[in-house]
């Protein structure tokens, strides 16, 4: 392995890293917003919208991100909507992630026993008070581990962005290997940057899990 090669590629990787993190996290925020809305729709049996929400979850959970990106990137222009690779990446990740997040939030909401609502009602709390003070905090505690797992999964899924020519980490590595054949250096840098991107998330996730779950579960 040639240290000179490593250092000369570094700026390109840093650039790709920042882009990957940016698009990745925008996608995750979109995913969380969609997830919350879809989970509430399903959990509260919102008429008309519930079957749509369920269909959305099934559709996006059961198709690969690559296919979804192709539809957005190459399909939408056919009906007159062009999107940049960056927007496509963030939206695609958000739509995929939304279906996963929805299931995480929903399973948390569903896991809070009815008796919790009843004992809160019996104390005179209103529906909104009991939802905010009793249901939501517990649902969040229950959902946290799977939400954290989703975030890590989605950050890794960004590697598919290279297929729509977004200059993310994967694209940069493939590009450089194709041009200069420094396979080892390129792959080492690739692994290092993915680790730099994901390990802090993993650690933060563990801290968050501890914080939210300790009260209820003691672990």
């Amino acid at each position: 392995m040639d240290p000179n090669v490593l250092s000369s590629y570094l700026p390109l990787y840093v650039q790709a890293f920042l882009l990957t993190v940016k698009i990745g996290w925008i996608g995750i925020i979109i995913a969380i917003l969609i997830g919350v809305i879809v989970a509430f729709t399903i959990h509260f049996n919102v008429p008309v919208l519930k079957p749509i929400a369920k269909a959305y979850v099934e559709l996006f959970r059961n198709t690969p991100l690559l296919v979804q990106l192709f539809f957005i990137y190459f399909g939408l222009p056919k009906i007159g909507i062009t999107v940049s690779a960056e927007v496509c990446g963030a939206v695609g990740l958000g739509l995929l992630g939304g279906s996963y997040m929805a299931e995480s939030f929903r399973s948390g909401l569903d896991a809070v026993p009815v008796s919790q609502s009843e004992s809160a009602l019996a104390l005179g709390l209103s529906q909104s008070q009991l939802f905010g003070s009793v249901i939501l905090p517990q649902a969040f505690s229950i959902s946290t581990p799977s939400i954290v797992a989703n975030v890590i999964f989605l950050l890794k899924e960004t590697s598919v962005f290279s297929a729509i020519s977004l200059m993310d980490l994967m694209f940069t590595a493939k590009d450089l290997i194709g041009l200069y054949y420094n396979t080892t250096e390129c792959l080492v840098l690739l692994v290092v940057f993915y680790i730099v991107m994901l390990v802090p998330v993993s650690i933060l996730g563990t801290v968050l899990e501890k914080k939210t779950r300790y009260k209820m579960f003691g672990v």
Partner: peptide, 14 residues
């Protein structure tokens, strides 16, 4: 009207 249930139903996160 206060009510106490068989399964206590305390709020586990509080």
């Amino acid at each position: 009207i206060g009510m106490v249930f068989q399964s206590y139903d305390l709020f586990p996160h509080k």
